[in-house]
């Protein structure tokens, strides 16, 4: 392997080296960081923003942004819990309606961006405010407690498997792996398939790279934007369900500032804010880095406010590196 090829491989996988270095540092300062319960806990924590980051990856790939995902999560939480607890709906029906609502919010975002031409940051910021308000209105600002979701996606499978093998010790885990982490892995696999193996993925890259050329080459750019924002809404909705299943209580204040964590994961994973560049494997690394960083800081008794400062710095550095490399290419 010559020097150039080595550098290319190194650059493409540098994010994983950062992840390993981070793990090593936290493990050095606190050996319990690498304990099985902590790893299980990290995988549980990262699951819902891992799921949401898939939709955000698609959006950022077309040089857009979705600031409404935190509010979608809160609204899905509240609507699903409201339908189940206050109206007595069946769990599956409540989940289905909640996720459909999340997709519709995504379609609304797509309509504002693609058809009306509102800049994505403004359109989705408006959605963020509107739907956070809806969540407050529906819940009256109060939590809806006592929601029991039997890990919806795998509920049937888990119940079936529980009766057969001892390895399935509890409803929340398959062996040592939390079910929400399994859902995240499946979503990442699906996201990776869409990006690398489907024509839609190719369209996402094309639109992010050169929108006008994409239009001339036959891609229906506006329709694609609808689809991408709808997908972002879908993954945010799914993340909301996973969060609800974890917390057992719906809160209209859930996931405030969540979109910035997700954007940090995605940009840290090498997805360019200019669009057209990025890989799902990088996003996985970004999610793991942020999850480990949060867990490591908690274990080192770093205050919540300091954690916010660190996360903000990570976002600034990640975007800064992206902008700097673009500037260097252009100069």
């Amino acid at each position: 392997m010559n020097e150039n090829k080595f550098m290319t491989v190194f650059k493409q996988n540098a994010i994983w080296l950062v992840f390993i270095a981070e793990i090593a540092i936290f493990a050095y300062f606190n050996p319990k960081f690498l304990s099985v319960p902590n790893i299980v806990n990290i995988s549980r924590q990262v699951s819902y923003y891992g799921i949401a980051s898939i939709g955000m990856t698609f959006v950022i790939l077309i040089a857009g942004i979705d600031l409404s995902i935190g509010s979608i999560i809160a609204l899905v939480n509240v609507v699903c819990a409201y339908l189940m607890m206050n109206m007595g709906w069946n769990m599956w029906l409540a989940i289905l309606v909640s996720i459909l609502m999340a997709i519709l919010i995504g379609v609304l975002n797509g309509w504002m961006v693609a058809s009306i031409g509102i800049p994505a940051i403004i359109a989705t910021f408006a959605s963020q405010t509107i739907f956070r308000g809806c969540a407050y209105l529906l819940s009256g600002g109060l939590p809806i407690p006592g929601v029991v979701l039997e890990h919806p996606t795998f509920g049937f499978f888990a119940r079936w498997a529980l009766n057969r093998w001892d390895i399935f010790k509890s409803m929340g885990q398959v062996g040592l792996i939390p079910i929400c982490a399994i859902i995240m892995v499946i979503c990442f696999a699906a996201g990776s398939f869409i990006l690398n193996k489907s024509y839609f993925g190719r369209y996402f890259y094309a639109i992010g790279g050169n929108e006008e050329a994409s239009e001339l080459s036959g891609i229906r750019v506006n329709k694609m934007k609808y689809l991408i924002y709808a997908l972002s809404g879908f993954f945010a909705g799914l993340a909301g369900i996973v969060l609800l299943s974890r917390s057992g209580s719906a809160q209209s204040t859930a996931a405030i500032g969540f979109e910035f964590e997700v954007i940090t994961c995605v940009v840290l994973g090498g997805v360019s804010v200019a669009g057209g560049i990025g890989r799902m494997s990088g996003v996985v690394a970004g999610v793991l880095i942020i999850g480990s960083l949060k867990s490591g800081m908690i274990m080192m008794n770093v205050s919540e406010y300091t954690q916010m400062v660190v996360q903000g710095l990570v976002l600034a550095v990640a975007v800064g590196i992206d902008c700097f490399s673009k500037k260097r290419q252009a100069s």
Partner: peptide, 26 residues
């Protein structure tokens, strides 16, 4: 011919438009 469009090679989610020189390099 598509590389002169307003949003070509723009940065920061389209908020910062590229200069003519940046567009040519891109």
């Amino acid at each position: 011919s598509t590389c002169n469009s307003a949003n070509y090679a723009s940065r920061m989610m389209g908020f910062r438009q590229a200069s003519d020189e940046e567009k040519v390099i891109r």
